[in-house]
Amino acid sequence: MTALMTVLTILLPILYLAVWADYLWLFYTEHPLARRTCSRAAGVVVVLHMGVMVLRGLALHRLPMGTQAEFMGALAVALLGTYLVVERRLRAKNTGFLTTGAAGLMMLSAAVVEPGGAKVSPLLSDPGFAGHAVLVLLAYTALSLSFLYAVLYLVLARQLMRRRFGLLFRRLPALETLERMSVVAVEMGVPLLFLALALGHLWMYDLADRPGLDPRLAQALTPWDPKILFSWVIFLGYTAGLVGHRFFGWRGRRMNIMAVAAFVTVVLGMGAVHHFFPTFHKFPGLDASAVTAPRGDGPAFAADHQLTGER
């Protein structure tokens, strides 16, 4: 089993790069063979990677998102999986080289950074927290895809406005399709974010009730935490965008500028909240004993350790 895992761990970045190459081939040549194979290849890689993650999780008794390499891998598979859902719904494959390229680079980075042994959060052994972390990852991946398609919309609109009929003009899908791809990504991201927040709240109350919890952390556990509040703002903002799109006919350049601005706000806002505001998401004083199923394989959780899944 260990040997198989090692082989798959080495093989996965290569497979990601192969999928990227297939999508690039499609973008540059629109070769029928590339069109036929790219989605299937990407699907196989996602299934394979998920299988590796499940096996790894079972072996480690925790969510395999603890180390930097694991987190990068999880991000890559989330990106590729989310992209495939959007691609399948819109039947537009020509933008795949961007997402698969990003996923490939993440896998490559995961292969070169330290493979493990770093301090991992004992919370990753807690199913409630693990579910929250996975949902957050998927939600923000979907929102990042929405950002990507909104940017592509604006780029193509600019090309059309300037009458540049080059490769992007010939290969990118219609503005209407790019907009729908962006909206579909938000339609996926918003409910995922809601679920992530709801589960996070439930888990937080559950954690607060656990005996032996560090008083500093117990005091910090509040639904008014800046990170939670900002997440609700993000959720409400994107929901308003969806309502505007569906019921008030928000379309076109303005809508896509809003999508870009929203995601930039998410990234900058989250960074600011994390660095400049007190938030319990840094989990001060938490150790393995506070976790329901303390089976983490890492050393004791450092007071100021940041959960990679929450970045």
């Binding site: 059309l160 899908p173 219609a174 503005l175 399709t177």
Partner: peptide, 23 residues
Amino acid sequence: RISTGAVSVAFAAVELSRKFFDR
């Protein structure tokens, strides 16, 4: 790809419009 892309003005008009509205 010797048969791809519009090579008449009327068809190019359709091709161009489809860069805006796919459906």
